[in-house]
Write a protein that binds this DNA or RNA. Structure first.
Lengths: 129, 129
DNA sequence: CAGTATCCATTACGATACTG
DNA sequence: CAGTATCGTAATGGATACTG
C-alpha cells in the first residue's frame, strides 16, 4: 500500500483512477486483449476481430494506445501499404491484470442474480436508462 | 484460461468486456474504492470524499452499484433520515483487482515518458481531443 | 490497405433548484 | 439529510463517403 503512491488529484480520493483512465477507456480493453492474446495485427485484421468498431474510432483508440506506449505501430512502406500493430512490453505488463479480470468473471452470474432480485424488489428503479 | 469461460458476444472477441462494463464504468471506481477503503458512508459523506461528483450522478451510480450487488444500501427511517452505503461481499471480492491496479500505477511514469516522446516525434497527432 | 473527413445522434454529465 | 426533477451542453461514438 506504499509502493504504489502516485500524485493524485486529492478530490477523487482514488489513486487507481489514472490507471483506469489509461487502460479501461472505451474500446481499449478489446484492442489490448486481442493484441495480447493473438499477437501482431494489421488494421483491417483488428477491424475484423472487433466487428462493431468503426475505422474512425479504431484509429483514435490505436493512436491513444500508441501514444501511451501500450501499443507499437510499424509502418511498412510497400504497395499496398502495410501497417502492423503489436502490444508493447509495457502493454504486456497488463497481462496479470487481465488475468485477474478474467478470474473475476466467474462472479458475473452473481451480478445477474443481484439484478433480477433488485428489479423484482424495486420495480422501475435503477435500471440503466 | 478455462475456469473463467463465460458467454460473450463473439464479435467483441474480449471475454473481460462484461466485467469492465460493470466495474469500471464511470465513477464506479472511486465510489467502490472509498467504500472498500474507508468503510460505510452516508450519502453526504461520499459527496464530500468525491467532491467533483454531483448528487444526481452519485445517486445514479449508487443505484447501479446496488443493483449489480456490489454495494448495500441501508435506510434508517429516522428524523432526519439516514442512509448508509457499504460495500458488499461481492464488492469486496474486487479488492485483489484493485490491488493489481494499484501496483500497476508504478508504470504511470513510463506512460508519461511515452507520451512526451510521442508528442515530440509526432507533433499534433493523437493528442486527446 | 490504411486510414481521413464529415455529419449526425445519443448520452453522459454538470448546474441548478426543489422536496419528503 | 438524501435525494429528485429539469434543463442545457459538451463530448463520444456511429454512419457514411472519400483518398494516398
Amino acid at each position: 500500500m506504499d509502493a504504489a503512491r502516485v500524485e493524485v488529484a486529492p478530490e477523487q480520493a482514488c489513486p487507481i483512477a489514472p490507471v483506469v483512465d489509461i487502460v479501461f477507456s472505451r474500446w481499449t480493453t478489446p484492442i489490448l486483449w486481442v493484441l495480447n492474446e493473438y499477437g501482431r495485427h494489421r488494421f483491417v485484421e483488428l477491424q475484423r476481430r472487433i466487428v462493431t468498431i468503426t475505422p474512425k474510432v479504431l484509429t483514435e483508440r490505436l493512436r491513444q494506445l500508441e501514444r501511451d506506449g501500450l501499443v507499437v505501430r510499424t509502418y511498412h512502406p510497400e504497395v499496398p501499404p502495410r501497417v502492423e500493430y503489436e502490444i508493447s512490453a509495457l502493454g504486456r505488463s497488463l497481462a496479470p491484470l487481465f488475468a485477474a479480470l478474467s478470474e473475476w468473471s466467474v462472479n458475473l452470474g452473481e451480478v445477474e442474480r443481484a439484478r433480477l432480485e433488485y428489479d423484482a424488489r424495486e420495480p422501475g428503479r435503477g435500471r440503466r436508462t
